[in-house]
Design a protein around this nucleic acid. Structure first.
Length: 587
RNA sequence: GUCCCUGUAGCGCAAUGGAUAGCGUGCCGGCCUCCGAAGCCGUCGGUGCGGGUUCGAAUCCCGCCAGGGACACCA
């Protein structure tokens, strides 16, 4: 927000250091961390330590001495109200009126675009969700979908051109088993609603039948053979039933507000994966052990000349020559760069258990000479488990289905809306319940670090109080309500002509941070940064709401506060939008 | 055995190597005659252990302890 002034100050500090025979400092600015303080700060401890060279000295005192000198040299630069040297820190306090106007104007001028960075003209791909067709979609699958979607939002807001990519697992033993079960026991049936749930039930049924009668495996193998021979009947059945799953996924993505630009399918890469494996064998990177009944492997540590075991052994092709997931991943990685040669990054949002797998895939491709391999990056996240550290598994039935969660969250939200806002039309109530329900589901998946396990339990999933999406939505609604009741256009840009109160200072401060936090969240691939900011914004707004009357205030204050409320509303809406959460107009 | 992740308040989580470690929840107690109480205010309570690096460590390094995960033909 004060980039120009900041740069000028940096130059002045550099000049000061040169003039005073000090080493060139590397200045890192951060927000003054105390509430009530309002501006940016930097410290001179490193510089002080460096200034002593090999000699010992009192760094604290020296840092303070430098800070004092610089503070004096700077005076009070334009845009700032105070410059202070405190314990080795240089604190630059923004001029309240000017800063307020600048932040509020920026937000209201830019509207939905506030927080977005300059376009970088760089393309990145994010692959996420990767659901298996012919299986249930449960809460464990939700994290990749939600995390990936928000990472796309963040990267886009940070200025990248994002290709949102899905990679459904549409072929494999699970599909073959499903087809066998369907053909034998359900031929001709078709689901009309809750498609994914129905597909999942049939899959679970297949597993159960095979467990109870292992001799049926022979029939399954027969179906696999038919698939391998591309038997038209099986291929047709596969295509038809696969589409049911995909339709079901589309329905859920629509409910969740998640979209994709590009679909790749597992089944597309059996051949191209094998091509790469052949190439690896030809180049001597992979060892073909099929003659002795083994698979095709890449002994990565050996090929890289590592003594330890870091990459272990990568199995690239089954001993019978059929493709496995790893084979297909080789083909897929290449295809992405064939389709999008300009990709600066190719991200894979996949759970942490596959970390080694992706290291192996990327390293193998690098050894194979593909320069783009280094642009591939696995974005690991921890799984969603059930209480007692139970991993959700479609096979064992210990799962919470997404359909059920969506329905429960929606119902719970509807119940609360009916209680709080009986006068709204049923349609509005439904709309609000959807926004609140989805928000309540998404927020907990985004508000903890990617590397931390999310434990799902119904009680906290349906708890709408405290640090959660409905809290932020509620603050938004309150802001909206004030503006509606004001019953007048938002006043034109103005310089506040009164002393800002503490809650106003805090609120403006947080609003002003959004653009930086977007960059930071995108850089570190951490939605958490935005969930935190959104919550803090809402909290600061609630504080403001309780302490600063708007509509009843005298005109000068009212006009200024109306603009602030509008800016806060916009900042909250934009933060929520980044998180894929809808801000309802009432709730 | 090798490698990765995680240990912060009863529980769930924050905190670019920086100043005074924050929030939610839970317990207890307050606040609707004031822009919406899905809200606000108050109270209790914490960096797994031991070294090291640094002016400064929850954060980086080493060791230990505890939990989770990955390691040749599953995805």
């Amino acid at each position: 927000m004060f980039e120009v002034e900041q740069r000028r100050i940096e130059e002045q500090i550099q000049a000061y250091c040169t003039a005073h025979d000090l080493p060139a400092p590397t200045l890192r600015w951060k927000w003054i961390p105390f509430s009530g303080q309002w501006g940016i700060s930097t410290s001179f401890f490193q510089l002080a330590a460096a200034s002593f060279g090999d000699q010992k000295g009192n760094t604290q005192a020296k840092a303070q001495e430098i800070a004092l000198g610089i503070a004096e040299d700077l005076g009070t630069p334009a845009g700032f109200s105070k410059v202070e040297a405190v314990k080795g820190y240089l604190n630059l306090t923004f001029d309240p009126a000017q800063y307020t106007r600048r932040v509020v104007d920026a937000v209201l001028d830019e509207g939905e675009g506030y927080g977005q960075g300059m376009r970088r003209h760089e393309q990145v791909m994010v692959e996420f969700s990767q659901p298996n067709t012919h299986k249930a979609f449960h809460v464990g699958h939700l994290r990749s979908a939600i995390l990936g979607d928000v990472l796309c939002n963040l990267l886009d807001a940070a200025g990248y051109d994002v290709v949102r990519t899905n990679y459904p697992g549409d072929m494999g033993l699970h599909v073959i088993r499903w087809l066998w079960n369907y053909k034998k026991y359900h031929m001709g049936e078709k689901p009309d609603r809750d498609i994914t749930k129905w597909m999942g039930n049939l899959y679970a049924e297949a597993i159960k039948r095979l467990e109870q009668n292992p001799e049926l495996d022979a029939e399954v193998r027969e179906v696999y053979k038919q698939w391998d021979n591309r038997d038209p009947e099986i291929v047709a059945l596969w295509k038809e039933t696969r589409q049911w799953s995909l339709d079901g996924f589309d329905d859920m993505y629509a409910k969740l507000g998640i979209r994709f630009d590009r679909y790749y399918f597992n089944s597309m890469f059996e051949d191209s994966g094998r091509e790469i494996v052949d190439e690896l064998i030809r180049k001597g990177i992979a060892d073909d052990e099929r003659a002795t009944g083994g698979p095709v492997v890449v002994k990565l540590d050996e090929k890289l000349g590592l003594t330890g075991e870091k990459y272990h052994v990568f199995v690239a092709l089954r001993s019978d020559g059929t493709a496995l997931y790893a084979t297909e991943d080789l083909g897929l990685a290449r295809q992405k760069f064939l389709d999008y040669p300009g990709l600066a990054k190719s991200f894979y949002v996949v759970d942490v258990r596959q970390s080694l797998h992706f290291q192996q895939v990327f390293k193998t491709l690098e050894l194979d000479g593909y320069a783009w391999a280094v642009k591939c990056q696995h974005v690991p996240y921890e799984i969603v488990s059930l209480p007692g550290n139970v991993v959700m598994s479609s096979r064992e039935g210990a799962i919470v289905l997404l359909e059920d969660l969506l329905r429960e969250a929606n119902e719970r939200a509807l119940q609360v809306v009916r209680e709080k806002n009986p006068e709204l039309t049923e349609e509005r109530k439904q709309e609000i319940a959807r926004a609140v329900g989805i928000g309540a589901i998404k927020y907990p998946m985004l508000s903890r670090d990617n590397t931390k396990v999310v434990t799902f339990d119904w009680q906290s999933a349906l708890d709408f109080n405290g640090q959660a999406a409905p809290y932020i939505q509620y603050a938004y609604v309150r802001a909206n309500s004030i503006l509606r009741k004001a019953n007048m256009p938002i006043p034109a840009s103005l310089l506040p002509e009164y002393e800002l109160s503490q809650p106003e200072v805090a609120l403006i401060d947080l609003i002003g941070r959004l653009p930086d936090e977007v960059q930071s969240a995108a850089r570190d691939l951490r939605p958490l940064v935005i969930t935190n900011l959104a919550y803090e914004l809402a909290s600061a707004f609630n504080d403001f709401y309780g302490q600063c009357p708007v509509l009843q205030a005298e005109e000068k204050i009212r006009n200024s506060r109306l603009r602030l409320v509008a800016a806060a509303r916009q900042a909250m809406a934009n933060s929520l939008a980044l998180l894929g959460i809808t801000a309802p107009q009432a709730m």
